[in-house]
Design a binder for these strands. Structure first.
Lengths: 176, 176
DNA sequence: CTATTGCAGATAAAATTTATCCACGATAAA
DNA sequence: TTTATCGTGGATAAATTTTATCTGCAATAG
């Protein structure tokens, strides 16, 4: 069982976007630079988050990405499902039917007990993931051991976030 | 997130072996035939189960596989870990360090909150898997809807199981 | 001795993940 | 209106992992 690396990237990007002000955006290229990731590949993942309505995207210069809803209403499960897909990790192949003894399909009506147990476990996994909100992760960023790391992130975000025209609250880009 | 197909095969094989009598064994080739699987590849998985002390193997003619301990003391988690490996599904790449701002390692002492949340979820997953015993699965085989399927499996097992010399309880191979 | 079985390693085919590139539409700013 | 910046989608390729096969070897019952 393995999770793609895109999951880690997606969570970090979302957590970073959680700290941009108002409805400002941040370009995908800046996010990629922020984590030393390949920009062209990261865009694929950001796209999936957009398709899943976790992020919003604004085209054009001064465009970029922002959260589609408050970080309190985005869970790790939302992000993991958006990146990894919604199918369960275990897929029952009904291999008992493949043996030498051919029985017709009516002999296999009851749901497979193995499948049921595996799905039960995955439900527990997803329930646990649903308990962590993106806002928790963002708070962790701030509470992290050394304040230098957090300060560096903040400066990076402040430098790259782009206020949007339709903003109701005036922005202070603070170019440095 | 995806589980390899070997997991399903391994669980089915173990459940089948749970119904061989005493310390009799069943050859890998028979197990493969029983599920329509490629014998040479299934052996790889059976081998992992053997390495994990879930199965025992007996070489030579009349050899084969059997459970290394009672089915009540084998859980689905044991099998999944043996096949998929013990590493967690999420591996923290510490990508926050890869950005353009270079901080020395001392700035990242605290454990990553994302990693902690993902590992918590996986612990829940594993705990759920550990609650299902192989004996439960085997019981499910018997309780399955149509008795024809179960009868066919029993006949197949009876036909292929091989009593062992060192057996303390006399066996009845029941060749048909 | 011989046939059967598990075991390890090399190898290859297939599928998936990771990554790059380019043409396109949208749009803000000059 | 022009230009430069940005997200989108598709095609493509490289890298890795999974799946599968084969061969030679050791063990052992008959």
């Amino acid at each position: 069982m393995k999770l793609g690396e895109g999951v880690e990237a997606a969570i970090h990007c979302a957590a970073t976007l959680a700290s941009v002000e108002g409805n400002s955006t941040m370009p995908g290229a800046a996010l990629a630079e922020s984590f030393g990731l390949s920009p062209s590949y990261l865009l694929k993942h950001l796209n999936m988050l957009t398709a899943a309505r976790i992020l919003e995207s604004v085209p054009g210069p001064a465009g970029g990405y922002r959260l589609a809803r408050p970080a309190e209403r985005i869970t790790l499960l939302d992000i993991v499902l958006a990146i990894e897909g919604r199918e369960p990790a275990f897929r029952c192949g009904e291999i008992r039917r493949n043996g030498p003894v051919k029985l017709d399909a009516s002999a296999y009506v009851k749901p497979c007990g193995i499948n049921a147990a595996m799905l039960r476990a995955e439900r527990a996994y997803r329930a646990a993931l649903a308990e962590t909100k993106l806002s928790d992760i963002a708070a962790d960023y701030a509470a992290e051991g050394d304040p230098r790391s957090f300060a560096a992130s903040c400066a990076f975000v402040a430098r790259h976030q782009r206020p949007q025209k339709s903003s109701s609250t005036p922005q202070n880009p603070k170019q440095m």
